[in-house]
Amino acid sequence: MHNLRIFLCTFLLLSSFTLAYADALSEQDAENWLQARTDLLPLAEEMKENGLDSFFKFRPLNIVDKGAPSYVKNLEELKADHPDYYARMNDIVAAFENKEEYMPFSNAEEWAKLGDRLMLALYASNDHRSTAALIEQRQEFENKFSPTMLGMMPKESKVQIEGVIEMLKSMENVSEKDRQIAKQYKTQLVFSLDNDVKEAQDRE
């Protein structure tokens, strides 16, 4: 049950990705993101030692914004609350000296957006329902929970239902190519996500 809660909440974190992408994910995208994540680990550990949540923070309860993407939301908060750490993160992600190893990102925001997209593709790749089935389920939710009914619900329940609907919309737009890339790098992506979840549980 606990793992199911984590799984569903993570879906909600990624649920604002409702637009289709013109370009499919590539192997290089996954390699770039994972390599940059490795480069960021020492900074994340320093933040943790100083009692701060890092940009890897898992956000199972952050659903009041209809499931803002995890890495993008983390980065927004980091930039607002700890601009010094944001600047250091940005420098690491866009470090020129890493160019021989992998194509650098222009800024930390690009890394965060790609991470959220990869995680969405990861969960979509684990869902074997067809796009038509996802659309049908979303429509069932929308028919069952009318705006009037949602308005009578407690806020937490309301945003959870809205998050599920947004999540299903997001899933509908994940391309087959993105799913294939996520499957190819599933081991590395799951390892990254599991570490984020474990850190969040350790801090509770």
Results as ranks from 00 to 15, higher is better:
residue 69 P to S: 12
residue 90 N to M: 01
residue 9 C to G: 08
residue 4 L to T: 09
residue 86 Y to W: 07
residue 38 T to W: 03
residue 109 E to K: 02
residue 179 R to A: 07
residue 22 A to N: 10
residue 48 K to Q: 10
residue 167 M to F: 09
residue 59 R to T: 14
residue 152 M to P: 06
residue 204 E to Y: 11
residue 14 L to H: 12
residue 72 V to R: 11
residue 179 R to I: 07
residue 192 S to Y: 11
residue 88 R to W: 01
residue 164 V to I: 02
residue 162 E to Q: 14
residue 147 P to L: 04
residue 67 G to F: 11
residue 108 A to P: 08
residue 22 A to H: 14
residue 74 N to P: 04
residue 156 E to Q: 11
residue 195 N to F: 12
residue 33 W to F: 11
residue 170 S to P: 03
residue 48 K to W: 12
residue 103 M to Q: 06
residue 146 S to K: 12
residue 10 T to I: 11
residue 142 E to Q: 09
residue 1 M to V: 10
residue 82 H to T: 06
residue 146 S to H: 08
residue 81 D to Q: 10
residue 122 L to A: 04
residue 188 Q to C: 04
residue 143 N to W: 13
residue 163 G to V: 02
residue 66 K to Y: 06
residue 60 P to I: 02
residue 103 M to D: 04
residue 64 V to L: 15
residue 76 E to F: 14
residue 16 S to H: 12
residue 26 S to K: 07
residue 56 F to V: 03
residue 2 H to E: 14
residue 192 S to A: 14
residue 200 A to P: 00
residue 200 A to N: 01
residue 129 R to S: 07
residue 150 L to A: 05
residue 35 Q to T: 09
residue 116 D to T: 06
residue 138 R to S: 03
residue 17 F to M: 13
residue 83 P to G: 01
residue 183 K to Q: 12
residue 108 A to S: 03
residue 150 L to V: 07
residue 104 P to H: 13
residue 113 K to G: 05
residue 64 V to D: 14
residue 69 P to G: 09
residue 191 F to I: 08
residue 13 L to E: 10
residue 196 D to G: 09
residue 143 N to S: 15
residue 180 Q to S: 10
residue 131 T to L: 13
residue 68 A to F: 13
residue 39 D to K: 04
residue 113 K to L: 10
residue 144 K to H: 02
residue 196 D to N: 14
residue 62 N to L: 12
residue 27 E to M: 12
residue 33 W to N: 08
residue 186 K to L: 10
residue 74 N to W: 07
residue 132 A to P: 02
residue 187 T to F: 13
residue 14 L to I: 13
residue 131 T to H: 14
residue 202 D to I: 06
residue 65 D to C: 09
residue 124 A to I: 00
residue 31 E to C: 05
residue 34 L to K: 07
residue 67 G to L: 06
residue 31 E to H: 02
residue 91 D to F: 08
residue 8 L to N: 11
residue 95 A to Q: 00
residue 116 D to K: 00
residue 140 E to C: 09
residue 144 K to T: 00
residue 9 C to T: 09
residue 78 L to S: 08
residue 10 T to C: 15
residue 64 V to K: 10
residue 53 D to V: 06
residue 20 A to G: 13
residue 200 A to F: 05
residue 100 E to S: 15
residue 40 L to I: 05
residue 1 M to F: 12
residue 122 L to W: 12
residue 25 L to K: 02
residue 102 Y to R: 04
residue 71 Y to G: 06
residue 200 A to G: 01
residue 31 E to F: 05
residue 177 K to A: 15
residue 73 K to L: 15
residue 142 E to F: 09
residue 25 L to G: 09
residue 24 A to M: 11
residue 51 G to N: 03
residue 116 D to I: 07
residue 63 I to Y: 13
residue 21 Y to G: 11
residue 159 V to Y: 06
residue 188 Q to W: 06
residue 72 V to G: 10
residue 46 E to M: 08
residue 121 A to F: 02
residue 169 K to M: 09
residue 202 D to W: 06
